[in-house]
Design a protein around this nucleic acid. Structure first.
Length: 515
RNA sequence: GGCCCCAUCGUCUAGUGGCCUAGGACACUACCCUCUCAAGGUAGAGACACGGGUUCGAAUCCCGUUGGGGCUGCCA
């Protein structure tokens, strides 16, 4: 795939205009996991191109912006790609790596210099700050080296010569016109001293070279869009062939930021943002994509549940919201629960697989029983919002030593005056009754009548004795699946514990350490 | 500090000058269903930030205020 990078050059401009192609790109930097904001950006880029495909031509490019050697790591690139695939966001071309295209940026930078559109600068950050302070100027580059005629040399950066007059207008499909006076734009650096291009240069050159028609990205990029436009014009107007210079700027679309509860931009340092983390927690990709799509956009008609195909059909970039959106894990979980309940049982088991064994499961591999699981799965499927809820809910089916929740025991058994009575009568009945859900149910109903309590009250001590918790899948189905032996044993154990004043502490974690 | 963006229930949103007594969803409360928990059902509470215009009429258009956010690197 690297081989393609260098020779990226698609069809002729004229053909493209004729064909009305719409081309977007998602350009992550591999300095961390794919985060939810990036995922949404990728999704929107994907949606518009896939829709364009239906009426003509659309192409979605994946471009890895790995020009900063210090920060990039191959594993991040891999992770980002895997996460995109997991979400079902597929690209038509790429991935292209900027690190494979450095010559291109170098050439363009040289041409900018030769045409006196950029200059070399040897100021250090400290010097710039000091001068600004002395002249009580705001931070930013003071154009100190603009007329010094410096040549390239070690320690020098190349700066773009921003016109001091006029204004630059960003035409944004979702925000309208954003006008910035050129004089407030500093002469920004475009090449580092080590000959590597800076983001704004490489990004602009690639968007030109790859003939991107729509630049769809986060709002944090809006402030440097005027720089992109200035660069674009410099590269086109004075440097390129006549054909290329006719090319219009791409259409820009700056998406509202995804924010945390404090309404700050989601950051990987302080917020949970990695798509992978949500996957590991048991979120389904289709739920994630669906939820993400709704952050900043809605199809109208009070509709919320959409699959990718429907999104492609309905998505409209011009109707994207302008205000930042809070990423609400609760609502995501709700979506996920709905998607899980819609799964057929085979897919449910397939997706649940990681939570059925070590390290996510609380039981050992040897304790797992597929026959039991296949009976249990339908009961569990209706009751979890994420897969990570499976181990605590289903543990009692597989574990020999069922962890006892102290609160449950204290409330429903130890602190309950009729619990011993219930357990003893249950034991007697369940030792010899027919082993059938209906019969198991009937037996406890009868005991409830005898004691003069509601079944709802009576089931609590029995449930805790058998499952270790007050909540869980339906009790009689569970008992039926578990079998007489285990049920009777657990009731017996509970009776003994009541009599000996058993007091559970924290759930027993020692088993896990042995694995 | 400078530049820029934004503003409908707590949250995500519908709404593009009359259909708005502002709709839906999550979360919340109550009730129903019920062997627990979920799910489901019913009901409830809950918003157009503020002030000026424009207009017969404004959540919707304009201006200002306030509040929030982003950017301000030899990061992307």
């Amino acid at each position: 795939m690297h081989a393609l990078s260098k020779q990226f050059r698609l069809s002729r401009i004229a053909d493209l205009v004729e064909a009305k192609i719409l081309r977007t790109r998602f350009a992550p930097s591999p300095t961390g996991y794919l985060h939810v904001g990036g995922a949404r950006t990728a999704l929107y880029n994907y949606l518009v191109t896939q829709k364009a495909k239906k009426d003509g031509l659309g192409e979605f490019i994946l471009r890895i912006e790995d020009t900063d050697e210090e920060r990039n790591r191959d594993e991040w690139t891999k992770g980002i790609i895997e996460s995109l695939k997991w979400l079902g966001i597929d690209w038509d071309l790429g991935p292209f790596f900027q690190s494979q295209r450095l010559d291109l940026y170098k050439e363009s930078a040289d041409r900018l210099f030769q045409n006196e559109l950029s200059y070399w600068c040897d100021c250090t950050r400290e010097e710039i700050d000091r001068r600004n302070k002395e002249n009580s100027r705001p931070p930013g580059y003071d154009r100190f080296c603009r007329d010094r005629g410096l040549d390239q040399a070690p320690g020098r950066v190349l700066r773009f010569m921003v016109p001091s007059e006029g204004k630059t207008t960003v035409n944004d499909v979702i925000r309208g016109e954003v006008v910035v006076e050129n004089r407030v734009i500093e002469d920004f650096a475009i090449m580092k001293a080590n000959n590597a291009p800076l983001f704004v240069l490489a990004n602009t050159i690639d968007d030109i070279d790859m003939e991107i028609t729509h630049v769809i990205r986060g709002e944090e990029h809006l402030p440097n869009t005027p720089k992109v436009i200035l660069l674009w014009q410099a590269l086109h107007g004075k440097l390129d062939s006549a054909a290329d210079s006719q090319r219009a700027l791409p259409t820009f679309a700056h998406l509202p930021l995804l924010v945390n509860e404090q309404r700050q931009k989601l950051s990987k340092r302080r917020d949970k943002v990695a798509v992978e983390d949500y996957r590991d927690q048991g979120i389904l990709p289709e739920a994630m994509v669906n939820y993400l799509a709704l952050l900043g956009w809605g199809p109208g008609n009070d509709r919320e549940f959409l699959n990718l195909q429907e999104m492609i059909e309905l998505f409209d970039l011009t109707k994207v919201n302008l205000a930042p959106a809070f990423f609400d894990e609760k609502k995501l979980a709700h979506f996920n629960g709905t998607y899980i309940r819609d799964l057929d049982i085979d897919r449910f088991t397939l997706e649940a697989r990681p939570w059925l064994s070590y390290p996510k499961a609380t039981w050992a591999e040897s304790d797992f029983d597929l026959t039991i699981w296949s009976q249990v799965a339908p009961l569990i499927k209706e009751r979890v919002a994420t897969f990570s809820e499976i181990p605590p809910m289903a543990g009692f089916f597989f574990l020999n030593d069922v962890p006892m929740d102290p609160d449950a025991w204290n409330k429903a058994v130890a602190g309950n005056e009729f619990s011993l009575d219930v357990l003893e009568r249950s034991l007697e009945y369940y030792q010899k009754c027919e082993w059938d859900t209906q019969v198991l149910h009937l037996g406890l109903s009868n005991i409830a009548d005898t004691i003069g309590k509601k079944l709802g009250k009576i089931q609590a001590p029995l449930r805790v004795a058998i499952t270790g918790r007050t909540v869980g899948p339906p009790l009689f189905e569970s008992m039926c699946i578990l079998g007489r032996g285990k049920v009777v044993n657990r009731i017996g154990l509970a009776i003994e514990r009541v009599k000996t004043g058993y007091s559970p502490t924290e759930p027993n974690q020692s088993k896990e350490l042995e694995n």
